[in-house]
Amino acid sequence: MGEYQEEKVNDTGRRQQEQFSLLFRQYEHRLYVFACNMVQSELLARDIIQDVFIKLWIKKDDLEEITNIEQYLYFMVRNKVIDVLRKLANDRKLRDEYFRNHQWQENKTIEIVEVKEFQLALAEAISHLPPQRRIIYQLSQINGMSREEIARELQLSPHTVKNQLTAALSTLRKFVSSHLRIF
């Protein structure tokens, strides 16, 4: 193969890669949301989108012949979803695994939201503590310092540190439990 032909082949390959990358960036998220709405599973939707783009890469030489790439991609995703759902319907083991994973994802999402709510409520409660009590709480609970270390650091008696820490924890428990239904 001549030098000119090699350059032409390399240019064509580079152009195909750039075109494919552009298509991926442009449509990946929208197709993912579309698939996720259909299968109700983030993990399964990711797999579907990955399979669709792999299939598209295999057909990269034919991309220029496709008149409406967006419609084509949505059609590919819809067909892949149908294939996946057919497999789930026909294979009990796959179906059980899908529903087990789907339930886990829902529970995990709820758990993440609850943790975020707790963290926000706790941060708000800490911000409402009197300044000295807030400092003592943060040194103890966030920095992991002992009462004696805090007393030395702040030049307070260990008894004062203990009382302030006990009061801070009590206030935080009440505040968080009144702001969150789960506690």
Rank of each mutant, 00 (worst) to 15 (best):
M1P: 02
E3R: 05
Y4N: 00
Q5M: 11
Q5P: 02
E7M: 11
N10R: 02
G13S: 06
R14G: 01
R14P: 00
R15K: 08
Q17V: 08
Q19S: 14
L22T: 12
L22S: 15
L23G: 01
L23H: 00
F24I: 04
F24C: 06
Y27N: 06
E28R: 00
H29K: 09
L31Y: 09
L31N: 02
V33W: 09
F34T: 00
F34V: 00
C36V: 05
V39I: 11
V39L: 04
E42T: 12
E42G: 15
L43P: 03
L44Q: 08
L44S: 13
L44R: 06
D47L: 12
I49A: 03
I49Y: 04
I54K: 00
K55P: 01
L56N: 00
L56S: 02
I58Q: 08
I58S: 08
K59H: 06
K59E: 13
D62N: 07
E65V: 14
I66K: 00
T67D: 04
T67A: 05
N68F: 01
Q71F: 04
Y72I: 00
Y74H: 10
K80N: 02
I82E: 07
V84D: 10
L85E: 15
L85N: 14
R86P: 05
K87R: 09
A89H: 14
A89T: 14
A89Q: 15
R92A: 03
K93T: 08
R95Y: 07
Y98F: 03
F99C: 02
R100I: 03
H102N: 08
E106W: 07
N107S: 12
I112W: 08
V115K: 02
K116P: 01
F118V: 08
Q119N: 08
L120H: 04
S127A: 09
H128K: 04
H128S: 09
L129Y: 07
L129S: 10
L129F: 09
P130E: 13
P131R: 08
P131L: 12
Q132F: 12
R134G: 13
I136S: 13
Y137Q: 03
Q138F: 05
Q138A: 12
Q138G: 09
Q138C: 09
Q141K: 12
I142N: 06
S146A: 05
R147T: 06
E148R: 03
E148T: 05
A151E: 03
A151P: 01
R152S: 13
Q155K: 02
Q155C: 03
L156G: 03
S157G: 10
S157K: 03
S157D: 11
T160K: 01
K162Y: 10
N163I: 05
N163D: 10
Q164Y: 15
Q164F: 15
L165G: 13
L165E: 15
T166L: 14
T171A: 12
T171K: 06
L172E: 13
R173C: 15
V176P: 05
S177G: 14
H179N: 14
H179M: 11
H179R: 10
R181C: 13
R181W: 14
